[in-house]
Write a protein that binds this DNA or RNA. Sequence first.
DNA 1: TTCTCTACTGTGAACGCTCACAGAGCATGG
DNA 2: CCATGCTCTGTGAGCGTTCACAGTAGAGAA
Lengths: 344, 344
Amino acid sequence: MTMGSNAGGRRRPPTIHDVAREAGVSRGTVSRVLNGGHYVSPAAQEAVNDAIRRTGYVVNRHARSLITGRSDSVGFLLTEPQERFFEDPNFNVLLSGCTKALASHDIPLLLMLAGTKDERRRITRYITAGHVDGVLLVSSHSGDPVAEELREAGVPLVACGKPIGLGSKVGYVAADDRDGARDMVRHLLAVGRRRIGMITGPLDTPGGVERLAGYQEVLTEAGVEIDEALVVSGDYSRASGAAGAERLLAQAPDLDAVFVASDLMAQGVLTVLERAGKRVPDDIAVGGFDDSPVATEVSPALTTIRQPWDRISNEMVRVLLAQIGGEDPAAVILPTELVVRDSA
Amino acid sequence: MTMGSNAGGRRRPPTIHDVAREAGVSRGTVSRVLNGGHYVSPAAQEAVNDAIRRTGYVVNRHARSLITGRSDSVGFLLTEPQERFFEDPNFNVLLSGCTKALASHDIPLLLMLAGTKDERRRITRYITAGHVDGVLLVSSHSGDPVAEELREAGVPLVACGKPIGLGSKVGYVAADDRDGARDMVRHLLAVGRRRIGMITGPLDTPGGVERLAGYQEVLTEAGVEIDEALVVSGDYSRASGAAGAERLLAQAPDLDAVFVASDLMAQGVLTVLERAGKRVPDDIAVGGFDDSPVATEVSPALTTIRQPWDRISNEMVRVLLAQIGGEDPAAVILPTELVVRDSA
DNA sequence: TTCTCTACTGTGAACGCTCACAGAGCATGG
DNA sequence: CCATGCTCTGTGAGCGTTCACAGTAGAGAA
């Protein structure tokens, strides 16, 4: 234990050379041990590992990157209007999931927020210069200029949710929105509801469109007439959920259930219903989407569709690393799960 | 415009050598232009800048870091139980504020989440190996082993909120919790309340302690007797706010105001009060703390204490960069602001 | 003139690593 | 016996930058 507790001025850290000398082998052998250990004798292997432990050696990533051309880091890029995502608890789950999945590969995550035009320019420049090996993208909007530019530059890219307007050269991971919506509406039918309204997500995003499609499909299958007045659109935010509920109550007083495309909106809906004197689920059943933390914090607890955020983040990382490794971009659709609680 | 739109396989990017040749100067001169431009003639300056623009040159940070020993990147380290922070909208504001403040210095932020023991080990290793120049720390708990180890290794460190148990070698930036609490309680007194309860934050954190101290100070000054039954403790979460409100109502039915140490808890309080048939603010005034997004989403909108999160993140970055530059760790206390809305 | 000082420029030498290559040792097969 | 192949090891070069140093030119002072 000659290392450590050297408070203040840091001393020069051991290099691969020091390890080689300590282990009685050459730099090349140490390097081979560090990178998988192929073509290394067991004896050398052990000697090197011992030496690494004794010296407290940690690879200098800059030197490695300089020669390999890889940075061994990836960017997490958010080009959405940030308020929307930062308000959304799912975003944090996604971000932390990706961070941890990457950490297990010893790859740091660089957070990149593209708000202003200046930031967009800077970030594009940073990424295309090769300072990260690939990018995890959160941007459901169509025609995202940053994403488009990165795609053209050939940067490995994996989006969360199916991206609009980007070609086939980007991978993506998404929950099966349509199937989730189907499950929820089937459940509402199963508990005896017939006048089922819906508050959709933004309809310029695939997620928003798919959830609406699932809703319509099941009703059609069940022979329930689709009433235009029962569908209003929102943007996933609490406020838009409240607004949607008010419109819905006005347009269709005989509503007996509502499928809300996000839990956050559902929270707004519950507030409005309570104020309007409607009991949930007795008078009106409410189904959410996401299974975000708020689902269990509201009263009654939300029946909702769980998006497998942990799996989504893991898959995003897996697909991105594969893509960095030279594989073709993959599209992954993950199953959702109906979570029945008190609201429906 | 010979660059760009080279879809697929990236070509070798221009180096400082290419720029030098293009500008008709030496590598050294280009390097000097890149690093502040001292001791460079205006003519050379211009020639180099032109050449940079023509070639689309971007510095190779790995090569630079290899020789300077700096990484020109900083870590954002979260050692708290993550749920607590990820649930808190302020955390996102802090994170995005730091990211942007750093971006304006062209310094990437590496997100580091220390949950499991394995992650803690990995992160400590990563940081002490010098892969980041400094660390922005979110960890109000006392006796944080990761932070302690980093401090001992001499890593520049700036905490958000006054850290407990860390020596004077770490900088920190905090809001003036005590003063904020004083302002709120004075306001409650000013609107005629006398039986003022409090739901505190965690009392093993300076923030929690300070807010309680401010509450007690003002009541004492005002000659109001401090009643033990009027103070219950929470942990900043919605659920603990609700629980606190229930205890408070049981212990002190004549309560006419309550100062809640976070907006999130206040949200829980409002729910309980509504259910108990208490009108806010008529029967009971509610004061929050943070001015987080929920403050305006609940009804009635919360009167609260605004923490200057944008300034906090900017200051954290400023202090950290100064510390990396060799200055001594600084402690910065920023003023809070009373925001009067409907709940008190 | 000559000497000094300042402003500017170019030139190796690093930084710590990986990679290609050469070569050693050993077994196998003809 | 050499030829061939395999496993393993060491060596030199080079990744793209900064830094220390040497050196040039011109201005000003002695």
